[in-house]
Amino acid sequence: MTSSFFLDGKEIPFKEGQTVLQAAMGAGQYIPHLCWRPELEPHSSCRLCIVIISGKPFSSCTQPAMEGQKVECNTPKLNAMRRAVTQLLFVEGNHYCPSCEESGNCKLQATAYHVGMQDSHFPHQFPIRERDSSHPRVNLDRDRCIRCETCVRASRELDGKNVFAIHGRGIKSRLAVNSPTSLLKDSGISPDDMAVKLCPTGALTVKRVGFEWPIGQRIYDKESLATIELREYANQEAVHG
């Protein structure tokens, strides 16, 4: 027997063990997210996938789908909150889209468009963060890091390297490199690592190839974030079940 719940009134089937987000994505219903990746353990830190269940907020990436539950997702109030959360991500880093090589390929930027972000709204914090360009092939620009820990998890779970960690707490937390010198050049990072490939912003990039993708041929130039994410999830499901 197939179980199901209701997402904004629409019936969503799910399999045992699936989260609300997984089931929704599998049913073609996009829920905004930044720190969640289908191939990684959920992290529940970006707060974009928050939904309301029985009047209470839950991260849909960690909340198990349950029979018959009523989930609110695409509501004006939640969308406004997602927009504010995205704006906070922008102002607490240093994100200069006009000169960023990831512009057009950046999931953070695409998310900002998706949630209707028109401006930063909140005062910019202008934090001072160190860039690590010591590695010959990989660049770490902490100005663009949103501390979603995608690289931390990908390095550990997919690359088997454990190159990254979050150091410090709260507003002073930053991405740290697990190497004798704390520099990328002395870590085991490689440009082919999933930690680099899955970074949703331009914090981790492969050196010397920036801007090789012309405007009009970048990831989010032709298709929306939701379309791409749903297709990738469907492909992932088809391969791994």
Partner: peptide, 10 residues
């Protein structure tokens, strides 16, 4: 401090 490939766009 910026990478050289960024400069023409910046």
């Amino acid at each position: 401090g910026r990478p050289y490939w960024e400069i023409p766009v910046l």
